[in-house]
Amino acid sequence: MKVGGSYTLPLLRQRAHELLQDPAILARCMPGCEDLKKIGPDEYEMQMKVVVSAVQGLFAGKVRITDQKPPESFRLIVEGSGKVGFMKGDGLLTLVPATVTTGVSILGSEGTEVRYEGDVQVGGTLAGVGQRLLDSTAKMIIRKFFEKLAEAGAETEQAAIVP
């Protein structure tokens, strides 16, 4: 399944890039992420409990970051598997300076558009019975991730500016 889209963060590009590499931030923003451990350079192990309505899945997996071109782009590879199936997402994230049009930013209107484009593979029960809802839930999860990232970003900015 192809996924693609973009989300504009109220953060400068450098900062957005840093946040996207910060395991503590990733752990906080990935929906259901319960544990994220660094196991190598740009490589993490994680536990995720994904809850979407009545659906619940426990996944154990890995997050890897490759093809680093700070602060412009990097590739994010997320793999997870659990009893209900497994998934692998592989996406290129490109960060482009942009103007923030909605939401409040303490930076004024300066922001970063994060464009993502990639492929999600799903296997097991999830793939066999979830087709009808995969696209909308994948989008929903990505949206949630960026929303939390924006929130986290705003907080850290706040902390940096207001000591």
């Binding site: 009545a54 659906v55 619940q56 899945g57 009893k83 209900v84 029960t125 999830l126 019975v129």
Partner: peptide, 11 residues
């Protein structure tokens, strides 16, 4: 909605 999800162990 709930029972099919439970039977598939998605819930």
């Amino acid at each position: 909605s709930l029972i099919p999800l439970m039977k598939l162990r998605l819930a």
